[in-house]
Design a binder for these strands. Structure first.
Lengths: 249, 249
DNA sequence: AGAACTTAGTTGCATTGTGCAACTAAGTCA
DNA sequence: TGACTTAGTTGCACAATGCAACTAAGTTCT
């Protein structure tokens, strides 16, 4: 805003400002999303994202972190601002503008999610089934498959939260190969196959093992540990994310 | 937001919601930015971005387009939502959250910019000189050169608009090579050298002619016209952006 | 014990993309 | 006419990528 001839007047009729958080985590080689089943109308029984009102003296990022901790117990997770959703009718109760955020939770912290203080149920839903037929906000995503509108079944999500989730997934996909964001979904130490599963889950398609390993090692994105993961078959070398100045590759 | 135990109460103490628009255009092989010199305090005489309050029944994207037209006469330009700025003290007059947008204006429409209805001066400033020593919001940008804080001179920009501009530039750089966004800064028909200048201005470094031309033609991002641009030396083939389903490459 | 199976990890190669130097082409200007 | 400038191409060395085939190390089945 360059000047404000109506600065004081404009404080009337301002929309409410909220934040919503799309939390992603890996579960059984699939990307999962944290939703909270709504206990009250509107959209009772539908899935909603954790979130709430922005307080007067906090940034939206801080509000997102606070609401996430209040409603799920999660703290110290990767969190980035995503997009602001402002369709006038997106909330039937009134004008609510919401600044959506995306959070990434390491796989080994998946079960640390607690119900909110008011005991609402938080649950993990796997991605390909949770969001079908929804397009992200803004410009269409890199993987520009025109998706159909929802079918006759009841929609799963409350408000426009399906669009928010689609937007978060598009952002995650877009950043996947130009940043080290994928490591935020992995435990401190992980095998290269586990890392490959993360990439495959986010991209939604299988990727070549050799190319993947070559890339991670040649770009020095990972460093070896002396430890191995032992399981049903041949033990696998454990790696950790290499310390870097920036998430950008 | 999953539930709203305090929905009605929260309508009090809500921040004001505004939009700001970072308009980029090419001028003499350099990337330029549209600023409006403020005529009133606070920040009188400093550069500000076009923008203003979001009206009750419009989206923020619509508000950005409306304010841009009201203040500069520009319409039908590429416009995308960028990032939301919410530091509680970013406006000394009170709590104002601003949703920043980025607009791209074709070079041949640069002189169609008109002063706003209240006759404030709009002017173009070239990028490398306008923003020095500022870091974008959110995560650091792809070109992660840690910039210094401003020096002793008076800052040029009002509010946090320097950060908004830095964020817009980072976004533009990030999308440059994975989208066809650069064409939005070019006239309908352009030479490949003109296109190269756009890429160089945005990246801030020279790029190889052969590689650049090979990429544009092999990916079929441009198509030949029968016309030539005639100037001081050898005439250059005119091209246009090839019609595509998506801006993503 | 040993064969079959599964997952981990490597080697080799053909294909494609990138960076750079050197060249040709077509105009202007002195 | 020749120097200069910008447009545009050719050729090549080198790096990145995709794919097939291989070896390695464990478990399980008989």
């Amino acid at each position: 805003m360059s000047t404000h001839p109506s600065f004081d007047r404009a404080r009337f009729e301002q929309p409410s400002l909220t934040v919503d958080v799309v939390v992603f985590a890996m579960r059984e080689s699939a990307l999962n999303l944290l939703v909270i089943e709504r206990g009250i109308p509107p959209f009772e029984g539908r899935w909603a994202l954790p979130g709430g009102f922005v307080l007067p003296s906090e940034t939206v990022e801080r509000a997102a972190a606070r609401e996430l901790e209040e409603e799920t117990g999660l703290r110290d997770v990767y969190l980035e601002q995503l997009y602001t959703f402002s369709m006038p009718d997106r909330d039937p109760r009134g004008r609510v503008v919401s600044v959506a955020h995306m959070a990434l939770l390491p796989a080994d912290r998946l079960d640390t999610v607690q119900g909110g203080s008011d005991a609402r149920r938080a649950e993990w839903v796997s991605i390909p089934e949770a969001i079908e037929k929804v397009e992200p906000a803004g410009l269409p995503p890199p993987g520009a498959k025109p998706r159909k509108k929802r079918d006759a079944r009841e929609p799963h999500f409350a408000f426009d939260h399906d669009v928010i989730v689609a937007t978060a997934l598009a952002r995650l996909r877009g950043k996947l190969e130009s940043t080290t964001l994928a490591f935020e979904l992995l435990p401190e130490e992980f095998t290269l196959t586990e890392a490959q599963r993360v990439y495959e889950a986010i991209l939604g398609r299988p990727i070549d093992k050799v190319t993947f390993r070559r890339r991670l090692t040649q770009l020095e994105l990972v460093e070896e540990t002396p430890r191995m993961r032992r399981g049903a078959h041949r033990p696998a070398r454990l790696y950790r994310a290499a310390p870097r100045d920036s998430v950008w590759i």
